[in-house]
């Protein structure tokens, strides 16, 4: 697998998420940062220090592996103290530090247990404690929560964020779960197709995806074919609408795709005031916190999410395009 054109600056003390579908190169990038893989070209700098040719064991990174990679032949405390043992720290001292770290991840009572006696969530915390034991300059986590069930995962997201703030360590998390990235990161790096697609704070990524890949991967989106009819204005299915976000619009007359979030669209049983598309309801799902309505417009199905507007399958409806929130995408 080859990574291309990765140019990233990660601010110290921040929490960064590499997010993307599986096989997009995010784990490779993390492993290059850890020193577990060597890039064929390019440089990796930590502050002023060039790490490109520094072997993993001299890199000063702490890493949580996807499988946690806890040593099955050692006890929990021995696992946490492993790095200190390699450095030749005295037994008593390294053990004290292991207890300190286990307290930090809220596992004070498992020090003498075997790894095999722990639950998945506990293993996850032990792996974090172990990675932090040497006070590394970088804290790297490869899909740290993917093995946990949904409820536990949410709790751990909060806990991990708190832990990171408390320790103040520069942290990189690799995840395939865009919601997780949005919920935790200061900075999100969306990757796809072995390159970086977009870098930015979570809200920026959500509001202003630069291309179809990001728009499709982060949250849900409706994609509409459009044509530029005037500066800042496009025509969608014969309806004129303003584009307020996203990429710069190409010249008047050219074709492009615009994106609209389900919650930016609205369904009306009668024609609304602004620009709207006419269609037929194909399915209504009441999800409790929102109602999702699917509307067939031409040969496309749009997903609309919002308050209930008493429509049913087969109804003729209008889907109102947003006055703000229509996003222009690069190819």
């Amino acid at each position: 697998m080859a990574l291309a054109d990765v140019d990233l600056r990660i601010p110290g003390g921040s929490l960064v998420c590499f997010v993307g579908p599986s096989g997009c190169g995010k784990t490779t990038l993390l492993r290059i940062i850890a020193g577990l893989e060597t890039p064929t070209s390019g440089h990796l700098l930590l502050g002023e220090r060039d790490l490109t040719r520094v072997p993993v064991h001299r890199r000063d990174v702490g890493m949580v592996f996807q499988s946690y990679a806890l040593f099955p032949h050692l006890s929990v405390a021995e696992n946490v103290a492993y790095g200190l043992r390699i450095r030749g720290v005295a037994k008593r001292e390294r053990l004290a530090r292991a207890f300190e770290l286990l307290a930090l991840v809220q596992l004070p009572d498992v020090a003498t247990k075997r790894v095999s006696q722990l639950s998945g969530g506990m293993r996850q915390r032990v792996a974090m404690a172990r990675a932090l034991a040497l006070d590394p300059a970088l804290f790297l986590l490869d899909e740290p929560l993917s093995a946990l069930d949904a409820k536990l995962r949410e709790g751990m997201q909060v806990e991990l964020r708190r832990l990171q703030r408390r320790v103040g360590i520069t942290t990189i998390i690799v995840t395939h779960d865009q919601e997780e990235a949005m919920a935790m990161a200061d900075l999100v790096v969306v990757m796809g197709d072995n390159r970086v697609q977009q870098v930015g704070p979570p809200l920026d990524i959500y509001r202003r995806p630069v291309n179809r890949f990001v728009a499709n991967f982060v949250g849900r989106n409706n994609f509409l074919p459009a044509r530029v009819v005037a500066p800042g204005t496009v025509e969608v299915a014969g309806v004129r609408a303003e584009v307020v976000e996203g990429a710069d619009l190409p010249s008047v007359g050219s074709e492009l795709t615009v994106a609209a979030r389900p919650e930016a669209l609205n369904v009306y049983p009668t024609a609304p005031a602004g620009p709207a598309l006419r269609g037929t309801v194909t399915m209504v799902r009441d999800l409790g916190w929102t109602v999702e309505t699917r509307v067939r417009v031409g040969d496309q199905e749009l997903v609309v999410s919002g308050a209930n507007v008493a429509v049913a399958d087969g109804d003729e409806v209008w889907v109102a395009l947003p006055t703000s929130g229509l996003v222009a995408l690069n190819a």
Binding site: L36, Q66, L70, G83
Partner: peptide, 22 residues
């Protein structure tokens, strides 16, 4: 598990040390 010796590496164990201890 490939990740076990790798984990030893991230904790400062040179390859030979990781091989012997893990």
């Amino acid at each position: 598990d490939q990740e076990l010796p790798e984990a030893a590496g991230t904790m400062g164990a040179a390859p030979l040390v990781g091989f012997v201890t893990v």
